[in-house]
């Protein structure tokens, strides 16, 4: 693996998003709008808002990195740049690490903005350590970026990437305990909840942000997320050079 090549890919990914105003708006403004709506609809119900806000921060991080990576990688393939890229000495690891670094940056910026809005404007009872929140989100984002790269292999156009949302993301939102506690769900859904990464991210975020626990206290959630991230990284590595 070449660190130089990975950095060049990361820089390029960042540059591409920065020059694409709509994507930039999608990353930075859209989550704020949703949070504002959530804040408005839960006004006067601070307990519900406190439980929902950390879960939504994790959901946004996963959703936007999945979408952006999926579409970016699809473009890389459809514009022919991936074909050109694989005729250079670049390795699978170079490409994966480059994409991870580039999109992790946006995920962190987005999470910081949403977090600040949640705490300062929506006044969510926040107790945890920001750094620990970021570590948890970072592992979730690695899983999400890898999933985006993997899924892009099976899409022929951007419309098809969007069609993966109901398959890959929506079920996670419903079974992760964001709206209804996992414990109250039917057995089948509880079992499903055990195998989706968002559930562990939501539990971990709530534990850190609301209860003020540390990463050591959410080691199970962190380990589960790391396993998902590792599995999806391997899956992405298998497909990343496929033109």
């Amino acid at each position: 693996m070449s660190w130089h090549r990975s950095m060049a890919i990361a820089e390029r990914v960042v540059r591409q998003v920065l020059r694409d105003r709509r994507s930039l708006g999608l990353i930075l403004v859209a989550p704020l709008l949703v949070m504002a709506l959530v804040g408005g609809s839960f006004s006067g119900q601070s307990v519900v808002l406190d439980r929902t806000a950390p879960a939504l921060i994790a959901t946004f991080a996963m959703f936007f990195t999945f979408m952006l990576t999926g579409v970016s990688f699809l473009r890389e393939r459809s514009q022919g740049t991936l074909e050109r890229l694989v005729t250079t000495p670049v390795s699978r690891a170079d490409i994966l690490v480059g994409y991870l670094l580039g999109f992790l940056l946006f995920a962190l910026v987005q999470s910081t903005i949403v977090l600040l809005y949640t705490v300062l404007v929506l006044d969510v009872a926040y107790q945890g350590d920001l750094l620990q929140v970021f570590v948890l989100l970072m592992v979730l984002t690695i899983a999400s970026i890898s999933t985006g790269i993997f899924v892009a292999t099976f899409a022929r156009n951007e419309f098809q990437v969007v069609q993966f949302i109901p398959v890959v993301l929506a079920p996670q939102v419903f079974v992760s305990g964001i709206m209804v506690p996992v414990e109250t769900m039917p057995t089948v859904l509880r079992l499903l909840a055990n195998v989706v990464p968002l559930r562990y991210a939501v539990d971990g975020m709530r534990a850190i942000m609301l209860q003020g626990l540390g990463l050591g206290d959410v080691i199970t959630e962190l380990a589960a997320l790391a396993i998902f991230a590792a599995v999806m990284l391997v899956a992405a590595a298998f497909t990343v050079r496929r033109t």
Partner: peptide, 19 residues
């Protein structure tokens, strides 16, 4: 096979780094 969002120099420089 060029990155449409980037400049001429960005494109050539990026592939130079890949090489």
């Amino acid at each position: 096979a060029l990155y449409q969002e980037l400049t001429v120099r960005n494109n050539v420089d990026f592939f130079a780094r890949m090489y």
